[in-house]
Design a protein around this nucleic acid. Structure first.
Lengths: 214, 214
DNA sequence: CCGGGAATTGGGGAAAACCCTGATTTAGCG
DNA sequence: CGCTAAATCAGGGTTTTCCCCAATTCCCGG
């Protein structure tokens, strides 16, 4: 029985390349591709793959949020996260969300294969180079953009993104259909959580955390 | 005669995936891989590939800077840039740096092949979706960071940098030993010149222009 | 099924940013 | 020597941000 795999990454070339890599293994089979988190969740529901390989940064629904949803629907699908950044120890958050594996995009193909095998059988797997970073990162809890960003509520993250996109509180309030005061409140709360009290700092934080492009 | 190719991307999995994609074509051959810009430049010198495929964001030396150096060493190697962002202003800069092609990472594999063929024979190639953005970008000279930043006076650039660093006008005034009103004036002037009227926009502009780090 | 805490929603007021107008001084340049 | 660009400062106004507070809803665990 082949291991069935769902591949989710917003970059088509990357997706196609990974598919070739994976399908060199006769016992692996890619049965679906998704270009964003929502699509990935849907495909997991319908296709029931053994393993879902999710890029951590995808539009509509991040890999982390998608992982949470996939865990909740109670399928047997195991989640393997692909991430670009070694420094960003999303790892903790990702594992808490229910993923079994975390592989860096600069890992060797062999590592990915090993990771797929591992999560397929219910084991967890971290890229060797990640383990090191995890330890380091745990020693330095301050200033970890990705982790700090995950402390924010969904609404707060949403507001932060819009602030970084250049909208005023008023515009954000209109866009989200709530009162100006509500947005100001979210703004105050997220500034408090991040301990960043300037728009300039928020923008740079949002960029480092991958919420918006420079 | 096969078309020889150098592949430069800092993510190994992406690199290996692309290699598989490319080598499905019998007339293409990947003769080297680089993990950063400097390495790419070195390998172009020694291997003399027909085409160098460079990721735009790489450590040590960006794809853009690597392109500049490759152009200068006067080899026959043609540069093809791979980018994540359909981003406006990169394209122009990349082409000015001497690249012949610009392909998005979410393009189809077939597009990449077409692009390789094109640049190999000296033609230029842009991802279809990019062409549109280029035209738009040319119509709006203000989103060309480097160029627009040079329109600013020294003092204005200085103030912009401090704004992006998170200082208030009052703090900037103290730091530079001038009146608050003076800083507000510089602030107003540079906002007018750049036609950016939000701190968030200024910060992102400053980052893109290389005035401050993210 | 219900209490508690978090998330989300709001208000008031002081501070800062933003906009428009105008002014003086200095330095460079044909 | 006028002319222009840059840098300096100011008044007075609107808008936005930011901080202290409180009411509601919603979900989770006992």
């Amino acid at each position: 029985m082949k291991t069935t795999i769902l591949l989710a990454d917003d970059h088509r070339l990357v997706r196609e390349g990974l598919r070739r890599l994976i399908e060199e293994r006769e016992d692996f089979r890619v049965i679906g591709e998704a270009t964003n988190g929502e699509e990935a969740v849907e495909l997991v529901k319908t296709l029931r793959p053994d393993v879902a390989i999710l890029d951590i940064s995808m539009p509509r629904l991040s890999g982390i949020d998608a992982t949470r949803k996939i865990s909740k629907i109670g399928s047997d699908t195991k989640v393997l996260i692909l991430s670009m950044h070694a420094n960003q120890s999303y790892v903790e958050e990702v594992l808490r969300a229910g993923a079994l594996g975390y592989v860096l995009k600069d890992a060797a193909a062999a590592d990915l294969m090993q990771a797929i095998e591992a999560v397929r059988s219910g084991d967890s797997f971290l890229s060797p180079s990640v383990t090191h970073h995890v330890v380091e990162a745990l020693a330095r809890p301050e200033d970890r953009p990705a982790v700090a960003a995950s402390q924010l509520t969904g609404r707060e993250r949403e507001v932060l993104t819009l602030i970084a996109d250049g909208l005023s509180s008023k515009q954000i309030a209109e866009k989200l259909g709530v009162s100006l005061k509500t947005i100001e409140s979210h703004r105050a709360n997220l500034m408090d959580k991040l301990d960043i009290h300037k728009v300039s700092g928020l923008v740079r934080f949002a960029i480092r955390a991958g919420l918006v492009a420079p």
